[in-house]
């Protein structure tokens, strides 16, 4: 492993928030991140927003990927954003959303601070590249 890699390893939290039990996508993403050389923490199913916030803060992740297929994104994402803000973690965490997000809801999520929404059909390479390019600089 090269010196540079050792110095800076991208840490990601893959979070399943809310009541949908569809975690195939989250598993596939977690594996892809691992194979890209990231350290991945998987939250497990059915997590409350506070739990995801707690994990993101304590693990000090660079990237928070939220998988939501329940349609409750307009409720869940703002709660998570507020929680991250409370702990001063919103600024330097790259927040991504994956799953089923209707077009008309996208702008609102992006306004809240979500960096990018990856829907069905997004390729792994695309997501991994996006993270590599946009992982926040840390102080």
């Amino acid at each position: 492993m090269s010196e540079a890699q050792e110095q800076r390893t991208i840490r990601c939290l893959v979070g399943k928030v809310g009541l949908d039990g569809h975690d195939r996508g989250a598993h596939v993403i977690a594996r892809a991140f691992r194979d890209a050389g990231f350290e991945v923490i998987y939250s497990g199913l059915h997590k409350a927003p506070e739990e995801v916030v707690q994990a993101a803060v304590q693990e000090d992740v660079d990237v928070l990927g939220l998988s939501i297929l329940s349609g409750a994104h307009n409720t869940l994402v703002p709660k998570i954003m507020d929680g991250l803000e409370e702990y001063g973690a919103k600024e330097d965490t790259l927040i991504l959303v994956g799953g089923i997000i209707p077009d008309e809801d996208r702008d609102e999520l992006l306004d809240l601070g979500v960096s990018r929404i990856f829907g069905p059909g997004a390729s792994m390479d695309e997501i991994v590249d996006f993270i590599r390019e946009n992982a926040p600089e840390r102080q």
Binding site: F33, A36, V40
Partner: peptide, 11 residues
Amino acid sequence: FTGGAVLGDRI
């Protein structure tokens, strides 16, 4: 090989 890891204890 990749340095990547899935850290699963938190679950």
